[in-house]
Amino acid sequence: MKPPPFSYHDPSNVGEVISLLGSLENPKLLAGGQSLMPMLNMRYVMPDHVIDLNKVEGLSYIKEDGGTISIGGMTRQRDLEYSDVMKAKCPLMHDALLQVGHRQTRNRGTIGGSLSHLDPAAELPAVCAAHDAVVIVQGPNGEREIPFSEFPLGYMTPATEMDELLTGVKIPAWAEGHGYAFVEFSRRHGDFAITSAAALLEVGSDGGITRASLTVGGVGAAPVRMNDIEQALIGQSGDEERFRELCEACREIDALGDVYASSEYRQHLATVLSRRALVKAYDRATGKA
């Protein structure tokens, strides 16, 4: 289990990355390496060129500006986990990050790498879907923004072109005091989720839900926003039985199945975890948890 031969490039700025991407045959971008390196070691991928992003300047940052959090593509998961800005403005991500891999992998793994790898069960894409994040990519013709809803084109296929680099992501924060919960089921602590549910809720002073976001990960080819449930949640109070009824719709998700978990089991988990996420988010929004 050793990497195959390749040429190594370590550009220092985004421009160089873009031109390398445009000129090299069969390149692969190396960010935190927590997914690419295993695939290299197992020779599941055989690139001719590896372009290392770790020396590229200006891609690691967490900024907040007028209700939007901007995160650089090479920002490490650990930095997000320990960021006061993230804890305050995007607690859903903090909740999710504690379930992402392990301390050693979070020290190296990046948000850009996770979004580009786009594993259907990964936590960070689900958080971005839940938050209506905007992905920023840069290519030979400059920068463009891709709403996260349009980012996954299919199973592990991001909407970045071959000569584009994901440089960052913008996350619109929700109102202060909103409820949030990232609930997942995995066999062991730190494993990719078999299924996850991310819920965001804003609740009015009368206890009625005024804004809702519900995302299911690990079931479809990419994280799925449960739009119908979200709409039906508006005006609801935190009645678990009502949540249960609404979450039954998760059984309709076009689900992946494999020998580890059938599509029916994933759909079933989606109903359970969505309900639990909503309950937890509602309790947090109303100060009960």
């Binding site: 062991r188 602590h189 494993d191 020998v259 580890y260």
Partner: peptide
Amino acid sequence: LFEWMGYDVTAQPITTNFAEYLLISAPE
């Protein structure tokens, strides 16, 4: 509760890494 060495109908092993074949870790 965790370990399963799987094979498909052609006797091809389908759990050949530590993400597919689960060893118990400290939290469990």
